[in-house]
Amino acid sequence: MKTVLIADDSPSNLHLLHDILTKSGYEVLVAENGEEVLDILDEEAPDIFLLDIMMPGMDGLELCRRIKSMSRFTATPIVFITAKNSSEDIVQGFSAGAVDYIPKPFNEAEILARVQTHIRLHDVLMELERLRQLALDANPLTQLPGNNSILKAIAEALNDERPLSVVYADIDNFKAFNDKYGFAAGDQVLRFTANRIVAAVEAACGKGRMVGHVGGDDFVFIAPTECTRIAVDRLIRDFDEGIRSFYSEEDLEKGEIRVKDRNGKLRSFPLMTISLGVVEVDAKSFSHHLEVSAMCAEVKKVAKSISGSSFFINRRGGFGD
């Protein structure tokens, strides 16, 4: 539910606007002057402001400037409600940071149309900014969000009311494959793995989940704990089925590849598998996202010690597979 904050020194105007907006499903906060608005903002974060220009003490223009000086409301739309509709008044309002104005006397349809339009526009702009930030941080090979986005998502997961799990995925024996088949083939494997992770998470938990590429052959995804096990099982199945297509028939028959180590000695390596470390997170178990990242690395080590594609879970009550 979107929240509208109305500031007007006229109780009748407040009552009228409150009725119009609440009937349309908005949560409405009201104030009769600028100081009351600032007090409300100590605890609330409205999605849009409707401010009367002419108020005693702090007028709407000054209040608008004060609100816009707060970093969390820089992009929040402010609409003036006013009987002053000269060109000079309108310019002053826009200069103060408003995006629109509604003339008095009020027209219900116009009020609802303008409020809805500006809230939707704000949501679109915020989504575009989120996508821009993801693009700036995206891994150039897989186009998945990178480290900054991953760490931010983990920090947000700690404060989420839902039980969430952070899953760290690592491709086993990827370096040996890269050394034998070349970097171009290795890049294809990384893109294949990214696609399989996204597909598994979407199938199990729905779209919109964080799937990130740490770098190299390391990936992370965050999903509700209730569907994480389903996503993990699907990912392992799909990875094991698809990874075989990257090997020659000869290597598939042998079930291994032969690669020279740093000393020039031939060594045998199994076909690639995937290891998954699963950490169930909440603010009671972890106080910082770096603690979660460290635990993911530890749990992933346990998973990698298990032969074949595998996972290991660090539950809030302890360890378990």
Results as ranks from 00 to 15, higher is better:
residue 7 A to S: 14
residue 8 D to M: 12
residue 12 S to D: 15
residue 18 H to Q: 14
residue 20 I to H: 01
residue 30 V to S: 11
residue 34 G to Q: 05
residue 40 I to Y: 04
residue 44 E to T: 03
residue 47 D to I: 05
residue 50 L to S: 00
residue 61 L to Q: 00
residue 62 E to G: 01
residue 64 C to S: 11
residue 68 K to M: 04
residue 72 R to Q: 14
residue 74 T to Y: 08
residue 80 F to H: 11
residue 85 N to M: 09
residue 91 V to M: 14
residue 92 Q to K: 14
residue 92 Q to E: 13
residue 92 Q to G: 07
residue 93 G to D: 03
residue 95 S to F: 01
residue 96 A to R: 02
residue 97 G to F: 09
residue 99 V to L: 04
residue 103 P to Q: 08
residue 106 F to T: 01
residue 108 E to W: 00
residue 120 R to P: 00
residue 122 H to W: 03
residue 124 V to S: 00
residue 127 E to M: 11
residue 132 R to I: 04
residue 137 D to I: 05
residue 142 T to L: 10
residue 142 T to C: 10
residue 155 A to V: 04
residue 164 L to S: 04
residue 166 V to A: 12
residue 168 Y to P: 02
residue 179 D to Q: 07
residue 181 Y to D: 03
residue 182 G to D: 06
residue 182 G to K: 08
residue 184 A to E: 12
residue 184 A to K: 13
residue 185 A to G: 02
residue 187 D to H: 07
residue 188 Q to M: 12
residue 189 V to S: 09
residue 195 N to R: 15
residue 198 V to C: 08
residue 201 V to Q: 03
residue 210 M to K: 02
residue 211 V to T: 07
residue 213 H to K: 10
residue 214 V to D: 01
residue 214 V to T: 09
residue 218 D to P: 09
residue 226 E to S: 12
residue 235 L to F: 15
residue 236 I to T: 01
residue 237 R to N: 13
residue 240 D to C: 06
residue 241 E to N: 15
residue 242 G to W: 08
residue 244 R to P: 01
residue 246 F to Y: 15
residue 248 S to N: 08
residue 248 S to G: 15
residue 253 E to V: 10
residue 253 E to S: 13
residue 260 K to V: 04
residue 265 K to S: 12
residue 267 R to W: 03
residue 267 R to Q: 15
residue 268 S to H: 02
residue 270 P to D: 10
residue 275 S to M: 10
residue 289 H to I: 00
residue 296 C to M: 15
residue 296 C to I: 07
residue 299 V to Q: 08
residue 304 K to T: 07
residue 305 S to N: 15
residue 306 I to M: 14
residue 306 I to Y: 06
residue 308 G to V: 02
residue 310 S to M: 04
residue 312 F to A: 06
residue 316 R to P: 11
